[in-house]
Design a protein around this nucleic acid. Structure first.
Lengths: 137, 137
DNA sequence: ATGGACACTGTAGTCGCTACAGGGTCAAGG
DNA sequence: CCTTGACCCTGTAGCGACTACAGTGTCCAT
């Protein structure tokens, strides 16, 4: 029962759907703790690494930046503090996401109207080009 | 009347709302033709540069990549060809934009539900952290 | 002559990876 | 025992689209 089962980087990669290079990169930038090494210098990950990496990937999927994740992880370690800060980060991120959606929707509408003007003629009279070059009459 | 009025890079930058460094960078990557130089080695832009840069910036605002813009500019120069290709690029880009919107909306919904679970207690029982770390019960 | 605004080149940094190149390690099969 | 092939290691360079210097030169008004 004291036996720690060890994971290679490849196993960890498959288990979390992460690229091997990405895992090494998370280590390099201090997101994922550097694991012990085997005698052959292979990284030997533990279950703790697996759950931490899962956390990171899930947060990435939700669009958090690595910096935000670093902060979240830092807070998550101080189990007895209030989780206001976590809530604030998540809410702030949601605001960002909603802003991005609004911007993209505006852009989509504009693109749509530009495309709607194309009469499929020659380039010289293409309305798309005209729409893109407002100063060049 | 044969006098060509010349624009410095700073004037061009202000006129198009572009960073000076960005203009030099567009030149470096072949999007904006390198202008003649003054005796003091300053870039001397013409009205043609202004309208081309306006085109680039407008297309960037609409979310086209520099590669797409390069293609658009290349087509725009061949005035007597059909504008099918331009239409195709614009339509393809619209598809991308709509996909991005859908992805962000899904993400926003998920974030929303994660945030909704926060009971503002201590980190140890924070539902946001739990939601992010699905394997670490 | 001098000050300040503007311009020049070149390099490094951003974010979040991805893609090598050139090696070392390990387990299974012959 | 040896080879094959899958896996792992380090280190570096590249992506897109810029941004931010550092160190130097130019221009114009006073």
């Amino acid at each position: 029962m004291g036996t720690k089962s060890i994971l290679t980087i490849g196993t960890l990669a498959k288990a979390t759907g992460t690229n091997i290079e990405t895992i090494r990169w998370y280590e390099k930038v201090g997101l994922l703790e550097a694991p012990d090494r085997t005698p052959g210098n292979y990284r030997a990950y533990t279950a703790a690494h697996l759950s931490r990496l899962s956390f990171i990937r899930r947060a990435r999927d939700l669009g958090f930046s690595l910096d935000q994740i670093r902060t979240l992880l830092g807070i998550a370690e101080q189990q007895d503090q209030s989780c206001e800060a976590i809530d604030a980060i998540a809410r702030g991120h949601l605001v960002d996401v909603n802003q991005k959606i609004a911007a993209l929707q505006a852009l989509g509408r504009e693109l749509d109207s530009v495309i709607g003007q194309c009469r499929h003629g020659r380039v010289a009279e293409c309305r798309i080009i005209e729409a893109l070059a407002p100063t060049a009459k």
